[in-house]
């Protein structure tokens, strides 16, 4: 498999929107074909080549180098292949993707994998707000796929998610799993306040204790077998240092909620 290398030579002065950077749009294009793809530099149309030096034909394996924290929408709608980003990346990475993998060796901005339906995003650093969430005004967030953040993530992780799996290695902000419809969120670190507000179904688990809303009811302390399999999968995917054996075998406090909604969701907090 040949690699397409995109190296940032001119950092954008204002946000650059590059939804064309995805294996689907690059495949079959020559180097100059890729450099001629259109991007939006603020309100001005520009070419990808104005910012990136391209090496190699367009294929399913794309490498990006440089500080891309001001570059938005990388991997929009991708369905196959792999994007590796050596550095930080801006907002909306992997927006609406349905397959393939995005690997970020740095921090990611807000809205990681918004409304994705499949595939996988791995962020080795921290992420911003709204990881795997719905856009404002949309009824549902991600409907499939996996998002793994090794570091911390901010507020509203998995807002309105319908299916899929989100794991956070560090701490989470407030309103984790707010309005969740279904799916699974695991936070290894501490969660902020108001976890699971308005959730209908789904599971939010944490390896730490967390403050609960008054509408969540304690049901029992038990060992959820299924969680063990999720945690093993995370151990195999780079969370080995954080997830220990006691977490695999231990007991969890189960709260059911949100009482205002269907009350079919659960929050599992590691007990001992």
């Amino acid at each position: 498999m040949s690699t397409t290398l995109l190296k940032l030579h001119t950092p954008p002065q204002v946000p650059l929107e590059t939804e064309v950077i995805s294996p689907t749009s690059l495949s079959g294009l020559s180097e100059s074909g890729i450099e001629h793809l259109q991007v939006m530099h603020g309100n001005v149309k520009a070419k990808l080549g104005d910012f990136f030096k391209v090496t190699g034909k367009g294929g399913s394996d794309i490498h990006l180098e440089g500080d891309l924290s001001n570059v938005k929408m990388i991997g929009t709608g991708m369905s196959t292949g792999k994007i590796t980003i050596d550095g930080d990346v801006g907002m909306h990475v992997g927006m609406g993707m349905s397959g393939g993998e995005i690997l970020v060796h740095g921090d990611a901005g807000d809205w990681v994998g918004p409304e994705m339906s499949g595939g996988r995003i791995v962020v080795k650093g921290n992420a911003g707000h709204m990881v795997g969430s719905a856009y404002r005004g949309q009824p549902a967030g991600i409907s499939g796929g996996e998002i793994f953040i090794y570091g911390n993530a901010k507020n509203e992780i998995g807002n309105s998610m319908r299916r899929g799996f989100i794991a956070i290695g560090g701490n989470a902000g407030d309103f984790t799993g707010v309005n969740m419809l279904a799916g699974t969120i695991i936070v290894a670190g501490e969660m902020g306040i108001r976890t699971g507000a308005g959730m209908k179904r789904g599971t939010i688990a944490s390896l730490q204790s967390a403050p609960m809303l008054p509408t969540f009811e304690y049901s029992c302390t038990y060992h959820p077998l299924f969680l063990r399999f999720y945690l093993i999968r995370l151990q195999e995917n780079g969370f080995r240092r954080i997830i220990q054996d006691k977490h695999l075998n231990g007991k969890y406090k189960r709260y059911s909620g949100d009482g205002i909604e269907l009350n079919r969701g659960e929050v599992l907090l590691f007990a001992r």
Partner: peptide
């Protein structure tokens, strides 16, 4: 938010946590 959420639950006739005053 917690107080509003508790009021919503009570309006709907749902249960709320016993720790509400402490919280």
């Amino acid at each position: 938010f917690e107080v509003l959420w508790a009021l919503r639950a009570l309006v709907k006739g749902k249960k709320i946590s016993e720790n509400i005053e402490k919280d």
